[in-house]
Simulated scan of single mutants.
Amino acid sequence: MPSSDQPTAALKGRGATSNQVERFSAWSREPDETIESANAAHEHVVQFKTHVTDEIARRIISRNNSPDVPFDRSINPYRGCEHGCIYCFARPTHAYLGLSPGLDFETELYAKRNAAELLRVELSKPNYRPAILALGANTDPYQPIERGLAITRSILEVLEDFNHPVGITTKSALVVRDLDILSRMAGKGLVRVFLSVGTLDADLARLLEPRANTPGRRIEAIRRLAQAGVPAGVIVAPIIPALNDYDIERVLEVAAQAGAEGAGYVMLRLLLEVHDLFVKWLHAHFPSRAAHVMSLIEQVRDGRHNDANFGSRMRGTGQYAELVRRRFELACRRNGLNMARRQLDATRFRRPDAHSAQLDLF
């Protein structure tokens, strides 16, 4: 249900153009002409400032059995994401908190400050069996508030203590802040990092991902990771038909030149509330192209706007999706990407003596 009491025009520094009501709410909002007139006359200005709430998590490792992803466990240090990517598939999760997947998702953030403490406890359990753990499976672990809170860094410190393998996905150059930890872990085959770069067009990226680093800074982060010996890769995501699909080959070429070893891609997914938010964003920024974009999305989703089926939800189906797949594979082969993927080593896992020696007696 759309919320009409918030502006539908583009908002500087934010991705969503509205704060539509979450789907579990029993009520909706209607426009107030008096408020709209006041806003227009600058008598009242609605501010959307970032607010961070501490969350005391009960568990920190999330499990999944999806055949579409190469991991069965992940950690999300934060709920919500200030990057404000309009297409983010994690937006609907804010509805579970009674908040809007729109502007609330970008501004009402939750930080799991006890994440490292919980992780240490979970990894110390005698029945825990190690396997690659994903950081960045839902919201970005290196979003802007991480610079001050350093929750992701504290998680990496625990993973290093236990020699636990981890895969990181982010669209932030802040990841290079932790090169000291990452380079040591890379020396043991315990880490790889993928930077998400959907386009090299900085202007388009600013509209799609208003508070994320520019594409150039993300490519530079790949370069610095590779130079430090950390296996790095690029994810061209999401591919949006008739909007950023022209840039697939260029992103892969530049990333490979920077030192990327691997690459992947994801077709745009318009699930649940993301659909309405994206359509509003599209009409606000690209009104003359909106119908064409949505038509092509229907072509890769069997006449619909979303596909939740395993096996096809990440790539799409049909001729257009097949063309994208072939372009991606040819560009990877031409640039030497995905030739040999280094496997992370779970055999090095150990429980630090200080935490396990006495407990092993019980």
Score class of each variant (00 low, 15 high):
P31R: 12
T34N: 13
T34A: 11
I35W: 02
E36M: 06
S37T: 15
S37M: 11
A38Y: 12
A38K: 03
N39A: 07
A41L: 13
H42V: 01
E43F: 14
V46S: 03
Q47W: 01
T50G: 00
H51P: 00
T53F: 14
T53Y: 10
I56L: 10
I56W: 05
A57R: 10
R58K: 15
R58N: 14
I61G: 03
I61D: 02
S62Y: 08
S62R: 12
R63M: 08
R63C: 07
D68W: 06
D68T: 04
D68V: 09
V69T: 12
V69G: 04
D72G: 15
R73S: 08
N76P: 10
Y78N: 12
Y78M: 11
R79E: 10
C81S: 09
H83V: 15
C85S: 08
Y87R: 00
Y87K: 01
F89A: 04
F89L: 05
F89P: 12
P92W: 01
T93P: 01
L97V: 09
L99Y: 11
F105I: 02
F105P: 06
E106V: 04
E108I: 13
L109V: 00
Y110A: 08
Y110S: 06
Y110V: 06
A111E: 07
N114W: 05
A116L: 07
E117Q: 13
L118R: 01
L118D: 03
L118V: 06
R120Q: 13
R120V: 06
R120S: 07
L123F: 00
P126D: 04
N127V: 13
N127P: 09
Y128E: 02
Y128D: 02
P130F: 00
A131V: 04
I132K: 04
I132N: 01
A134D: 00
A134H: 03
L135H: 08
L135M: 06
L135S: 01
A137H: 11
N138T: 15
N138F: 15
N138L: 15
T139G: 08
T139A: 09
T139V: 14
T139P: 09
D140Y: 12
P141Q: 01
P141I: 08
Y142P: 12
Y142I: 14
Q143I: 11
P144I: 04
E146F: 02
E146C: 11
E146K: 14
L149P: 10
L149M: 11
R153S: 14
S154E: 11
I155Q: 01
D161Y: 00
D161I: 05
H164I: 01
